[in-house]
Design a protein around this nucleic acid. Structure first.
Lengths: 204, 204
DNA sequence: ACGCACCGAGCAAGCGATTGGGCAACCAGG
DNA sequence: CCTGGTTGCCCAATCGCTTGCTCGGTGCGT
C-alpha cells in the first residue's frame, strides 16, 4: 500500500509550511544547520518532531528551500545591477546595495553557508550552490576588470582577490545582527563599505 | 620544579599527543568542532575512540589547547605590533601582517571560532575567549582612534564598525585556503587589504 | 466520509565518555 | 643473563543519551 503521491510534497505551497521554514531558518541562523535538531524546530513550532515530516520529507529539504531561495534572489539582484548600470563604478555600487538588501532578508541562508558550507557543497543535491557561487564571482570580477580597462579603478588591482575581500566584507556583517545590540543598519554598512572601497580610510 | 603534575595529563608534552592535536585540528577546520566526533579523530589516527582518552581527558580539552594556543599567538603579535610602531598607520599595518601570519598557522582554531563560537563562549571553561576577543577589539579600536586624532585617518570613521569589517575581512580568507587551488599567500592578502584600506580601489 | 495536520511511541544508528585489561618496551637489582 | 616492576599506548566493550526519521492512529473541519 505504497503511497503513489506525485513524488515530492515539496512543491505544495502552504501557509503553515512557509511558517515552519521561517522558524527553522531562525534556528539555523543561530546555531547552524547541522547543529539544529528537528526536535528543536518542532518545539519552536509547538508540535512534535515527527509531525514535521508531514510537511517535509527530510531535514535537508528544508535547508534546500532556504538556500535556493536565497541564491535566486542574489543572482536576480546582481543581473539587474549589471544591466541597469552604465559604468563599472555604478555597477559595483548597485551590486553592493543589492547585496545588503538581499542579505537582510536571508540571514538564515547566509549563516548556513558560513557554518556548513563543507557539508552542503559536498552533496550532489546541493550542486547548484557551487554553480551559483561561480556566477556571483564572475559578476564581481567582470565589473572590476571593466573598471580597470576604462581607467576607473587602479590598474594593478587583483580582481579575484579584491572580489573575495569585498564579498566577505559585505556578507559577514549580516551575521552580526543576530546578537549584539550595537547593530548597524544595512544602509550604514553599505555606505561604510562603499566609502572604504572608493576612498580608503586615509584622510584626504 | 613546579612539575608536580597537576593531576591533569594535559600538561605532558608528547610527540604522539601533538600529532593527535594536529589531526583533530584538521578535522575541526573542515567540519567544525561540534560536528566532528571523537571516533573520526581516532579513525584519522588509526586508533579506537577510547584510546584518545589516554592522551586527553575530554574532547573539549583538545579544543581548549588549540584555541588557547591560537589566542596566545594573536595577542602576542598584537602587543608587539603596537609596541613597535610609531604612528597609527604603522600599527594597523603591523597588526594586519601579524594577523595574516598567525592565522596561517591556526586554521583550525579560526574555523572553530567561526563555527562554534556560541558553543564555546557559553561555557565557563572558555571564558578566556571573550576576554581575548575584547583585547583584540580594544587594540584595533585604539589604533583607529589614534589615527583619527592625529589626522592620519578620516575623522568620520566609525572605529568599531571599521574594526569589525577589517577583522572579519582579514580572518575569513584563512578559511578559503583549504579548498580551492587558487590560493593567495598571506602576504598577498595583507598587501591587497592594506592597499584597499589606505587607497581604496579608485584610480588616482 | 474524507483528508489534513498532528500525536504518541518508537526504531536503528550514532554520539561522547569511561572502564578494565593487554601488550610491548624499558630499567633496576640479582 | 634473567627477573619483576613500571610506564606508554592501545583495544574491547559498554553505558546513557540524542540523532533523523517512521508509522499507525486520532481529532477536527469540511
Amino acid at each position: 500500500m505504497t503511497r503513489v503521491t506525485t513524488s515530492k510534497k515539496a512543491a505544495l505551497p502552504s501557509e503553515r509550511r512557509a511558517h515552519l521554514i521561517q522558524l527553522a531558518g531562525d534556528l539555523f541562523a543561530e546555531k547552524g544547520f547541522r547543529a539544529t535538531t528537528v526536535r528543536e524546530i518542532a518545539d519552536a513550532a509547538g508540535i512534535l518532531s515527527g509531525s514535521l515530516y508531514h510537511h517535509f520529507d527530510s531535514k535537508e529539504s528544508i535547508g534546500d528551500e532556504i538556500l535556493s531561495a536565497f541564491l535566486d534572489d542574489v543572482l536576480t539582484g546582481y543581473r539587474a545591477a549589471v544591466a541597469d548600470s552604465e559604468d563599472a563604478r555604478g555597477a559595483i555600487e548597485r551590486i553592493v546595495r543589492s547585496s545588503a538588501e538581499t542579505l537582510k532578508r536571508h540571514r538564515a541562508a547566509l549563516a548556513m553557508l558560513e557554518n556548513d558550507w563543507n557539508y552542503f557543497s559536498g552533496q550532489p543535491r546541493f550542486a547548484y550552490l557551487r554553480k551559483a557561487m561561480k556566477e556571483i564571482e564572475r559578476t564581481w570580477v567582470q565589473q572590476l576588470e571593466r573598471g580597470k580597462e576604462t581607467g576607473q579603478f587602479r590598474a594593478d588591482l587583483d580582481a579575484r582577490l579584491t572580489y573575495r575581500l569585498l564579498r566577505d566584507i559585505l556578507w559577514i556583517p549580516t551575521f552580526w545582527r543576530q546578537g549584539r545590540g550595537a547593530g548597524w543598519s544595512s544602509d550604514q554598512i553599505s555606505d561604510g563599505l562603499l566609502r572604504l572601497l572608493f576612498d580608503g580610510i586615509t584622510a584626504p
